[in-house]
């Protein structure tokens, strides 16, 4: 079991993060600080820079300027290894469901018996035990996304980034993914999740970051941001106006 006190101390912060293309600013996040134990939800309309920010925080994209730090350290291979990411469209390896998990566990150097035990535990966690030997690409989208989350969790991450993991899912499948995410959070995995579903933000978030036009327009405890936002634009967005 992880040390919860230490876990809640995990901090990811940006310093002067900027990305622009052809003179247009896509991302401008001078100083965002993600601390605290609960899930962070990054909210905003399409093209707000949410996914871009997530990729920068995970080190998948190198920003034009600025840095990302985790617990005060620049993102190096070691810090990145403590992070995992789940994508909007789950990437299923052309292997069985168990094989997708085995791929990650093998890289972590677990022996056969350890891997099998871990695979069984993970599949039980995600409600997929009966699917173990099935081809991963024959899963439904909802099941595939759950497998993608389980595979990310198999790396034993301290931080789990999720990029709109439920955008293509129906309510039942969304609920299954959300409960998986919440259980991981309860075990001490730091969750940072992008969504444009305001209801999802209400259900999951401890703190909410609202982005528009590549900038963070509001960041604070979920209740405060969702119920009493400071910015007029955020208020209109939360009220369901079509902002783009």
């Amino acid at each position: 079991m992880r040390d919860l006190v230490e876990e809640s101390g995990l901090v990811i912060e940006t310093q002067g993060l900027r990305i622009s293309r052809r003179g247009q600013s896509l991302l401008d996040v001078p100083n965002l600080r993600l601390g605290g134990p609960g899930p962070t939800v990054i909210l905003g309309p399409n093209g707000a820079g949410k996914s871009l920010l997530l990729r920068c925080l995970h080190g998948l994209i190198q920003a034009d300027a600025g840095t990302v730090r985790q617990n005060g350290r620049a993102l190096d291979a070691e810090e990145r290894a403590s992070q995992a990411m789940v994508f909007q469209r789950p990437v299923m390896l052309r292997r069985s469901v168990a094989g997708n998990l085995d791929f990650v566990l093998r890289r972590r150097g677990l022996n056969r018996a350890q891997r099998q035990a871990r695979i069984a535990a993970l599949l039980a966690e995600g409600g997929l035990p009966s699917r173990a030997r099935q081809g991963a690409r024959s899963l439904s989208v909802g099941e595939a996304q759950r497998l993608a989350i389980l595979r990310a969790l198999a790396t034993e991450p301290e931080v789990l980034f999720l990029d709109e993991p439920t955008s293509a899912l129906d309510p039942g499948a969304t609920q299954a993914v959300e409960s998986l995410v919440l259980r991981a959070s309860a075990r001490g995995v730091r969750i940072v999740m992008v969504t444009h579903d305001i209801g999802q933000a209400r259900r999951l978030a401890a703190d909410v970051v609202v982005m528009m036009g590549g900038q963070v327009v509001e960041h604070g405890p979920a209740a405060q941001v969702l119920d009493d936002p400071a910015s007029g634009a955020v208020r209109r967005f939360l009220a369901g106006e079509l902002i783009f």
Partner: peptide, 12 residues
Amino acid sequence: AEYAEQMRSLGL
């Protein structure tokens, strides 16, 4: 094209 980001995320 499909795998690149996922593999990078997994540290490959």
